[in-house]
Simulated scan of single mutants.
Amino acid sequence: MGEKTNLLGEYLRARRDLVTPEQAGIPVLGARRVPGLRREEVAMLSGISAEYYLRLEQGRDRHPSVQVLQSIARTLLIEDETYLLGLVAVRPRRRSRRPRRETVPPSTARLVHTLNLPAFVEGRYLDVLAANALASAFSPRLAVGRNRLRDVFLDEAEAAMFPAWEGTTAGLVASFRNSVGTDADDPRVIELVGELSVASPQFRRLWARHDAGNPRTSATITFDHPQLGPVTLDREKLLINGTDGIMLVIYHPDPGSPSAEKLGLLASAALGPTTSGTTTAPSDTV
């Protein structure tokens, strides 16, 4: 439980630094030493004592009420409080901290390979666990064994596909934090966060913000494709029942749009005229 309380303190401090006095409706008089709100200001605006809020940040209070956390969330402009509440939820400890093995249900693997749209399966660590031929044709990084965090942050060709790279990376990190939750001692999380923090200043900055977005949020993404040019696709992330956070990800264009025409051309070129409608799952599907 101490582990979760420390995560709560880190989260509160990070979010407090991101809220300006002006956003909170506090007049600014003279120079300030902190970039965001002071602890006592958060406490005042949340209707709790400064001493109690200090105990929360220092991890000395292990049982804050839902009402207190919701009040703090409003003060810190946290729109979705799910992650915040999850930091203090009582969950049984796992005896083993070995990396989890993620397995795609066979029916889902078959479905991915029969879709005539770019589709892949994404694990809770944002690993690509399965992908159909059109997904890999759209981006060679959408292939089994790749990791979306590593590719978007560290692979120049993949990063170049996202004109709104700043926003894309912010959403990706928030989704990853939400997906892994409070498993701070998960070996895979430690590996990824450590590697990316060293290799990417952008990741390091975003991870320190403690943003936690909804990984199942639909979005419209405009890609700068190296062969097709601008392509705008809707992205759907669908939770696969019976799994620990594994998602089916599908990109689809607006019917009749220029992007739909471009995707059709890619399918014809990559899959051939006899297979562009559907593709057959390989025998060694994950």
Rank of each mutant, 00 (worst) to 15 (best):
residue 139 S to Q: 11
residue 30 G to H: 14
residue 2 G to V: 07
residue 218 S to A: 10
residue 93 R to A: 09
residue 5 T to N: 04
residue 151 D to K: 07
residue 5 T to K: 09
residue 246 I to Y: 00
residue 168 T to G: 00
residue 1 M to D: 01
residue 131 A to H: 03
residue 66 V to M: 00
residue 222 T to G: 04
residue 89 A to Y: 11
residue 88 V to T: 13
residue 6 N to P: 00
residue 80 D to K: 08
residue 90 V to Q: 14
residue 46 S to L: 05
residue 96 S to V: 14
residue 45 L to Q: 13
residue 220 T to H: 13
residue 68 V to H: 00
residue 183 D to N: 14
residue 124 R to P: 07
residue 168 T to D: 00
residue 41 E to N: 02
residue 9 G to N: 08
residue 197 S to A: 08
residue 114 T to Q: 14
residue 249 V to M: 03
residue 267 A to T: 07
residue 216 R to K: 12
residue 120 F to D: 06
residue 157 A to T: 06
residue 99 P to T: 03
residue 209 R to T: 15
residue 50 A to T: 10
residue 249 V to Y: 05
residue 216 R to F: 15
residue 132 N to K: 09
residue 71 S to G: 14
residue 272 G to P: 05
residue 189 V to F: 12
residue 228 L to E: 09
residue 47 G to H: 07
residue 227 Q to C: 06
residue 74 R to Q: 13
residue 204 R to E: 08
residue 26 I to T: 14
residue 223 F to T: 12
residue 74 R to H: 09
residue 196 L to Y: 06
residue 107 S to K: 07
residue 95 R to P: 02
residue 74 R to M: 00
residue 110 R to F: 09
residue 18 L to Q: 03
residue 60 R to G: 12
residue 56 L to E: 11
residue 240 I to C: 05
residue 236 E to V: 04
residue 142 L to M: 12
residue 207 W to I: 15
residue 278 T to V: 15
residue 12 L to F: 11
residue 242 G to A: 15
residue 12 L to T: 06
residue 184 A to Y: 07
residue 167 G to S: 05
residue 278 T to P: 07
residue 286 V to G: 13
residue 69 L to W: 08
residue 259 S to E: 08
